[in-house]
Computed example of a mutant assay.
Amino acid sequence: MPIVFLIIVGAAAGFLATRLMDVQTSVPVTVAIGVLGALVGSLLLRLALAMTGLAFGFAGAVLGALALIWLWKTYFRG
């Protein structure tokens, strides 16, 4: 089922992309453009989200460390 969905979405994306870029292609080429574009786009999006996740993880680690230092200074350091 995911292959069929990829072909349908790829056909729609390829059609839209070829019209926006004003390129005249056959139906199989349009579908291939859309499917390959979907694969490349999803890989780039996953990479961007992974990098963003790492950045948020680092920011969370820094905030957590700051909170622990604040607790230590406030309650445990006479």
Rank of each mutant, 00 (worst) to 15 (best):
I8F: 01
G78N: 09
A32H: 01
R46D: 08
L44T: 05
G34T: 01
L39A: 13
L36E: 04
A50G: 11
V31I: 13
L45Q: 11
V31W: 00
T74C: 02
L47F: 15
L68Y: 09
M1L: 10
V29R: 09
A13M: 13
A55K: 14
R77S: 04
G60K: 08
V31C: 01
T52M: 15
L49P: 03
V62W: 00
G53F: 08
V35I: 09
L47E: 15
V23F: 12
A11S: 11
S42V: 06
W70P: 00
T25K: 09
V40G: 06
L49Y: 13
A55L: 14
L54I: 15
F5R: 09
G78M: 04
A12P: 03
G37M: 03
T52V: 14
F58G: 11
R77P: 00
Y75V: 07
K73Y: 08
A48E: 10
R46H: 14
K73P: 03
M1Q: 10
G34M: 05
P2N: 13
V27D: 01
I7P: 01
T74M: 07
R77T: 07
G41P: 03
G64H: 05
A65Q: 06
A11Y: 06
L44P: 03
Q24P: 04
L71Q: 08
G53M: 14
I3W: 09
F56H: 13
A50N: 12
A38Q: 13
